[in-house]
Write a protein that binds this DNA or RNA. Structure first.
Lengths: 141, 141
DNA sequence: GGATATGATTGGGAACACGAACCAAAGGAG
DNA sequence: CTCCTTTGGTTCGTGTTCCCAATCATATCC
């Protein structure tokens, strides 16, 4: 149990900023007619073609949840399931052309959103922020 | 549209770390028999007694969502609704004694979880990380 | 007093996430 | 080759979350 005020402040900053970023991304996603989780999946699929179970693991979700998620994204024409060569059970998830277009658009919009927020920081602070986050919480997808 | 590699890297770090923190807090909450959002509400109510609409605004949620949220937390004995003096419509939300106990326990557990993650950082990096986050994404509750 | 605004709730619907169960395919041992 | 176990993905049930529209009681203002 940590009682160092600096540690408590960092804890609060991490928690609150994460909820804030999630909230902002959620609202951006809603403007594009989708949910936060779908926005996340599109981002992941921009440069990957994972199997369903790989996707579930990378997202930290239950496999059944991913099935539903991909069902809905597929219904919107954003992704498709591709049979895996050499494994009759295997399903890979890939973006459709429309999915790629939407994913690129979203990436740009996210970039703008976050760039606006970090604009007050100096280049050194930005780099320091990035390095701190990468050293601690960047894992999975 | 930003194409500076440093900015793209920061964007990715922010997005991925936020999802990661959310995922970790979600799992911690589940271990304590509650959802991420309930964990968040308990944290907020530790040092506030907001009206329902204030709570909705601070959380960035629709008022009706907050009604459901507080209903469930109340059903678990964690919070209670208190009539507002001088306003027949007003409802304040406060932690019960049990809610306070659980909220304190959660806060400690969150502290441990995050302290473990930031342990690799130097004190200077921790401060830099906190300051960067506070200058950019810490708002609302 | 009447009209308008405000605060909280109710109800409907969609998305999400977990866990259990299921089925087909794959892998391994005898 | 046969049988058993594991793996991959899906289906189903349940609870939570979140938004929107509508409702009702209270408050505010002219």
């Amino acid at each position: 149990m940590s009682i160092d005020p600096e540690d408590l402040a960092l804890r609060d900053a991490l928690v609150r900023s994460s909820f804030e970023v999630m909230g902002r991304l959620s609202r951006l996603a809603a403007e594009e007619g989708m949910s936060l989780t779908q926005l996340r999946v599109l981002g992941v699929l921009r440069d990957r073609r994972p199997r369903m179970a790989e996707l579930a693991q990378g997202l930290g979700l239950d496999r059944s949840s991913v099935t539903g998620l991909i069902d809905r994204a597929q219904a919107k024409g954003l992704v498709e399931r591709v049979a895996e060569e050499g494994d009759g059970r295997g399903v890979r998830v890939v973006l459709t052309a429309e999915g790629q277009r939407v994913a690129a658009l979203l990436a740009d919009r996210v970039s703008e959103l976050l760039a606006d927020a970090v604009a007050p920081l100096s280049p050194a602070m930005k780099r320091s922020l990035r390095e701190g986050l990468e050293a601690t919480f960047v894992s999975g997808f």
